[in-house]
């Protein structure tokens, strides 16, 4: 959108210590706010909490309305690194291409986090190099 101003520093970090709305008992302890066009969170846990959890929910149980965000918990699809890379970099259906705002390392980290948490046990086998290769193949840029 043309009406965004994309620059600058910001100093806001919100702690969920105030009044909580119903239903957010599982909200993460803190969600930082990045300063530019790329996510600044580092590590799979932080990226999951700040990006994925908005739709897939903090416990990865998914959410359902007129259509649904699938649970990532106990989800066999996350065993396929190719599938996850394609969704993160290209988007599909309800999934926006959030990987376009992450580095190869960040994508690998958040993939490995999901693949080894929430009842998934597919190993931390994804490397930044794998993600970089997928990104080049899809013609996507960070």
């Amino acid at each position: 959108m043309p009406n965004e101003i994309r620059c600058g520093l910001l100093l806001v970090v919100v702690l969920t210590t105030g009044v909580a709305a119903a239903g957010d008992a599982l909200a993460p302890a803190a969600i930082p706010l990045s300063r530019g066009r790329l996510f600044e969170e580092q590590g799979g846990a932080a990226l999951f909490a700040s990006v994925c959890a908005g739709c897939h929910q903090p416990d990865a149980s998914g959410a359902s309305g007129a259509a649904a965000y699938p649970a990532l918990a106990e989800n066999g699809n996350v065993s396929s690194a190719d599938y996850m890379e394609r969704l993160l970099l290209n988007g599909q259906r309800g999934m926006p291409p959030v990987g376009q705002m992450m580095s190869d390392q960040q994508i690998a980290d958040v993939m490995n986090y999901v693949r080894t948490h929430f009842g998934n046990a597919y190993g931390e086998g994804v490397s930044p190099e794998d993600v970089g290769a997928a990104r080049r193949q899809m013609g996507s840029s960070p």
Partner: peptide, 13 residues
């Protein structure tokens, strides 16, 4: 990024 980070927060936050 901020739109996603805000989405991940509770309404109160």
């Amino acid at each position: 990024p901020n739109s996603y980070e805000l989405t991940a927060m509770s309404p109160a936050d």
